[in-house]
Structures are given as structure tokens and as C-alpha cells.
Simulated assay, not measured.
Amino acid sequence: MRVFFDRELDTAATFWRVFRRDGIALGFTAHDRDLTFSGLTHRSAPGMMPTAIRMTSDLNEDSAGVEGALSHDAIREQDLAAGLFDGAAIEMGIVDWETHEHHVLYAGTFGQIEHDRSGFSGELRSAKQMLEEDYVPRTSPTCRAEFCGRGCGLSAVRYTSRAVLIDVDYDRNAVAFAGINADLYLDGQVRFLDGPQTGAGFFVVGDEGRWLMLDRPLREGLAIGTIAELREGCDHTLATCAARFDNAVNFRGEPFLPGNDLLARYGEGLG
């Protein structure tokens, strides 16, 4: 295995690569020319650099970040705003730019991404972050289970369908599809199968007539006739679970549990 920085003058450069959820893989290097290794061309991007990487042998979360100028055509402001990099897997490491021997120093996913017209910065999350999640259920009046997910018991296939895009309103960030009942998709999801935001997931945050309002900006160029995958939504209330889905037996909430103010109440007829 190649040992880096074991000599006074080393032919080393940093690299990082991004694997987006829509299937696009991008590679970059701080070297002054493109480097191809591991079956991927890493394009020269001296203006984009990993920040300090902290790795520990204990269970504490490793930290890293990446930042750069929006001067590279592979990372554009519109793509960041459209969420194409949200949740993308990322690897960062060091490579010998003569022999292409390399070593991955950090692997994780993109967390919070901040950007403006001139540059961007991204928080990276390692697999250790899963150890910090609290998996102990808490009481709540609404269902804690993800709709059609673990604990819900309903089939995702049953409530997922494909529809044809018939209209787009970029000002309202809304879309309309043929042959659907828009009311069923409030709190649901939309995923386009073609176009500039292929594979990106959108949450439906509102509905007006035939329109579905989405939670993130739509990119110009979304063509009428594009096929999308739609998942119905659920407001996680017991009434909806029982009446619409006949699934009250799997309801993961406590709608009738007394609130914290119970102990502060005076009993009726006392005093």
C-alpha cells in the first residue's frame, strides 16, 4: 500500500468524488490537470477543496467538509438549489498524480449545503452519525411511523403510481399531473424519472385544485409529458389511518394520552 508523505517531495494531490442519488458520479482533484483512476475521471478543480478532516477511533462523530467557488460547470447553483446533491454519497482522499495510487480518507454523505452565487460549502456526515440517533420511541398524538415504512404495515407499491406531467408553474413551484386526485398526495412525494431533476425527491407541501406545491425549487426545462413517480401522503392522524387506510391496528401514536397539564388541573366539583 502506498505510503504518502514519507519523503521530502511527494507527488500527492487531494481528490473527492460525489455519487448523487440520481445515478450521476462526479470526481474532482486539487491537481492542475484531470486524473483518471478507479474508472472515473477526476476533473481539475483547484478552487474546490476539502476542509479539515477529523477522524477518531472512538464512537464520536467524524467531521469534514468541502467548499469551493461555483466556477465549475459540474456543480452549479441551480443544481444545489434543486437538491440534486442532497444526501449524496461522498469520498475524499489523496492520490499520487504520477502513479494514480490513492487512498480514501473519508466516506460519508452530504448534510447541510449552503450556497450563494459565488460559492458553496457542504457539511459531510460519516456513518458514525447513525450512532447518535435516538431510536427510543417517544409518545406523540400522531403516528411516528413513516407512511408505508417500518411499523406502518402498508404496501408502498399499492400507494405509488406513475403519472404524466401536464403543467408546470415555476412561480408557485407547483406541478400538475394527468388523471390524479391531488388531495390524496398532500404530504406525499414526487420523483421525476426524466429531465433536469431526475431521481430527486420532492415533498408535497400543499395542493390547490389540480396543483401540487413542492418543497424545493423546480429547474427550468422540466418538459410537459415527463413521467413522475407519485407516492400518496398521510397526515399521521388516527382518523386518517382508520377511515382512509383501515390501518388503525398499526397506528404508532397515543392520541388519547393525557397531556402534561393533567397534574395542574383541579378536579371537577372540588374547591
Rank of each mutant, 00 (worst) to 15 (best):
G87Q: 08
A163Q: 14
G93P: 02
D79V: 03
S118L: 14
R7A: 12
L59M: 10
D261E: 12
R172D: 12
D22V: 14
D171V: 15
E123R: 14
R43T: 08
R162E: 14
G253H: 11
L124H: 06
A82L: 03
W97T: 04
L35N: 05
L70D: 10
T51S: 15
V157G: 13
L222D: 04
S38E: 14
E67V: 03
T160L: 07
F19V: 01
L40C: 03
F4Q: 10
L105P: 01
N181F: 08
S121K: 15
F120D: 01
G149M: 01
F120V: 02
G111Q: 04
D32M: 14
Y185R: 00
G267W: 00
I180F: 08
Q112Y: 05
F245V: 03
H100Y: 08
D261T: 11
W16M: 15
N181L: 07
A223T: 06
L186I: 04
V190A: 01
R162Q: 13
R117L: 14
R54E: 13
H72C: 03
G122Q: 00
R172M: 11
G271H: 02
D58I: 09
G199H: 06
L9G: 07
R252W: 00
L124A: 03
R172W: 05
A228D: 09
Y185T: 05
F147E: 01
V205H: 02
S38D: 15
I227F: 02
V168H: 06
N260P: 12
A64H: 09
A30D: 15
L230G: 10
V164Q: 13
G87S: 05
Y135M: 06
L26K: 06
P196M: 02
G233A: 08
M1G: 05
H31F: 13
V164D: 09
R191L: 01
E132H: 08
E114Y: 08
A178M: 13
A88Q: 00
A239M: 00
M49L: 11
A69Q: 12
H42Y: 07
G271L: 06
E67L: 10
P217L: 14
V175S: 10
T240D: 13
R191Y: 02
F256E: 15
G179C: 02
Y170L: 15
C143H: 06
L257S: 11
T237E: 05
T11I: 06
A200N: 04
D171Q: 13
V164P: 00
L263K: 01
I166Y: 00
V175D: 07
L212G: 02
A127Y: 04
